[in-house]
Amino acid sequence: MDTPPTADHRICFFGDSMTQGTADPQCRGWVGRVCEAARVRGIDVTCFNLGVRGDTSRDVRQRWEAECAVRFTVPCATHVLFSFGANDMTLQDGALRVGYDESVANLQAMVVAARQRHAVLVVGPSPVNEPEQDERIVALCRRYEASAQQLQLPYLPIVRTLMSNQRWRGDVAASDGCHPGALGYELMASLVQRWPAWWFADNAA
Results as ranks from 00 to 15, higher is better:
42 G>R: 14
2 D>W: 08
29 G>Y: 02
65 E>Q: 14
87 N>W: 02
98 V>I: 12
2 D>P: 15
108 Q>L: 09
196 P>S: 12
118 H>S: 14
58 R>T: 05
160 R>P: 02
171 D>R: 01
136 R>I: 07
112 V>S: 09
142 R>E: 09
92 Q>C: 04
49 N>K: 10
193 Q>D: 06
165 N>K: 01
171 D>M: 02
101 D>S: 15
195 W>A: 14
124 G>A: 14
148 A>N: 05
111 V>Y: 01
137 I>W: 08
130 E>I: 15
49 N>C: 11
131 P>F: 12
178 C>Q: 12
25 P>V: 07
2 D>A: 10
133 Q>P: 06
35 C>A: 12
148 A>L: 10
181 G>F: 07
101 D>L: 05
73 T>S: 13
89 M>Y: 10
96 L>G: 03
53 R>F: 06
106 N>W: 02
194 R>G: 06
12 C>R: 00
92 Q>P: 00
60 V>H: 02
99 G>A: 07
185 Y>C: 14
17 S>H: 09
130 E>S: 13
44 D>Y: 05
83 S>V: 05
201 A>Y: 07
185 Y>V: 12
55 D>F: 00
166 Q>I: 00
46 T>Y: 05
140 L>G: 01
30 W>D: 01
100 Y>L: 13
102 E>K: 06
9 H>C: 10
134 D>Q: 11
156 L>F: 09
53 R>K: 10
133 Q>I: 14
63 R>P: 04
169 R>M: 15
68 C>R: 05
77 A>M: 10
84 F>Q: 03
90 T>N: 03
8 D>Q: 13
172 V>K: 09
188 M>L: 15
76 C>Y: 05
109 A>Y: 08
106 N>K: 07
180 P>G: 08
63 R>F: 04
42 G>Y: 11
46 T>N: 04
103 S>D: 00
139 A>H: 11
107 L>D: 07
102 E>F: 00
27 C>L: 14
203 N>E: 12
60 V>G: 02
106 N>E: 04
35 C>H: 11
67 E>K: 07
113 A>N: 13
102 E>A: 09
165 N>L: 02
176 D>F: 10
56 T>Y: 01
129 N>E: 13
73 T>V: 15
58 R>G: 02
31 V>C: 06
131 P>D: 13
63 R>C: 03
86 A>H: 03
